[in-house]
Design a protein around this nucleic acid. Structure first.
Lengths: 214, 214
DNA sequence: CGGGTTCCATACACCCCTGTATGTATCGCG
DNA sequence: CGCGATACATACAGGGGTGTATGGAACCCG
């Protein structure tokens, strides 16, 4: 709701611009899915008439294109970047975990919404598929640089990424303490190695400092 | 399309019954999602008027309930059954793989469609969540009976199940030969153990005999 | 101050979907 | 034969959504 701050409750904040419509559309996309992103509903939400929308956008499709562009700009490359900086295996994997829990760097709800959308829009599907491919590839490359055979690296990359996707997709919510208890088990399963206690504690401490929400 | 066989091209195959509508609705659900399951569209598909539908069903919601019941009847328990019969670890895990590739036992497209649907219908969400919980629990229990600690068993169950869910959700399609090459890597990652060559070959031979499609 | 630009309101045309009420054809069956 | 029940057709009421055409209010600016 903070996304509508420019207008909102104030009587007559000057005017809406293109980005206001996109911001509103993004929240609706995340909350209720792409089918709920309708000109009429957004107008009601922004408390203007549809006339306004059709001044800023050529059509609903134009808005949807803008949404996809926004997703690309936000969620692309975040995971890849996390890995390229890492020196050791554990550092990289833990940093990946960190990205996935840090919703300021990676927005899982938006990612999920776009993914749902993509299942019934071929154009979107292509974008998402390519992005997924990039992510898995970069994780696999990371494993390879740390001594894993190509096939094993690829499969481990898939397993770790696919697991996380389902984590989001099923909307798993569990308390931080419980999640912390799973850390080394996940690490063991994903890498085949044990996680040093020092590394685990340092990671959990860092998470606690950053105060991750879920 | 074979689902509409009772009526179909023939001039005036006697009449439609409730199951004909459900069958048509299922194909539409799988192909185009729950929003496309509309009385009007189904009528066009079955080449009758909407009057027919409202004779067989009280409302569109009644049809949707029937669809959910159909999903429950088909896809529930299949995975659980696969594990309870297994004697050894590898036997159980490989049987799980077998179920996932055998679309006559487990229908991933229907599962995925219901899952998509569930994300915007709270009642459906509950059913799916409970089913997921059962599946993960039963896999975890299987790991435990083969010597894994409870936490590790649970995480490995999650990882193996979540990975497979994403496999479906992303619609990964790869040739059988390629997939066969991944088998032992998957097994290694999921269980932490190596898969005996004999077991692998036997499994692949069995798959080939059954002639799995994808 | 007057005119152009920006932003939005109003109104209309068009389409699609649900649900209901009612008419109608076919068939089983006593 | 005639009468219910079955299965569907027809027609109407109501609602929601997209676009478009056009009018008007506020504002910038020379």
């Amino acid at each position: 709701m903070t996304l509508l701050s420019t207008r909102d409750e104030d009587k007559r904040m000057p005017q809406l611009n293109r980005d206001d419509w996109i911001a509103a559309a993004l929240t609706v996309l995340v909350e209720e899915g792409i089918d709920a992103v309708q000109v009429t509903q957004l107008s009601r939400l922004l408390e203007v008439t549809r006339g306004s929308f059709y001044w800023h956008f050529k059509s609903r499709d134009a808005l949807l294109e803008a949404l996809l562009a926004e997703w690309r700009a936000r969620n692309t490359g975040v995971m890849v970047d996390a890995l390229t900086a890492a020196q050791t295996l554990s550092e990289g994997i833990l940093e990946l975990f960190a990205v996935w829990v840090d919703h300021t760097r990676f927005d899982p709800r938006l990612d999920q919404a776009v993914r749902d959308w993509s299942r019934r829009a071929d154009g979107v599907l292509k974008s998402v598929a390519q992005e997924d491919d990039n992510r898995v590839r970069s994780i696999a490359a990371f494993f390879e640089t740390h001594g894993y055979e190509p096939t094993e690296a690829f499969i481990r990359a898939r397993v770790i990424y696919f697991t996380q996707l389902s984590y989001y997709s099923l909307g798993v919510r569990e308390p931080l303490t419980e999640r912390a208890g799973f850390l080394s088990a996940y690490y063991q399963c994903f890498t085949g190695n044990s996680l040093g206690e020092g590394d685990a504690d340092a990671f959990l401490a860092r998470m606690a400092r950053n105060g991750v929400s879920t």
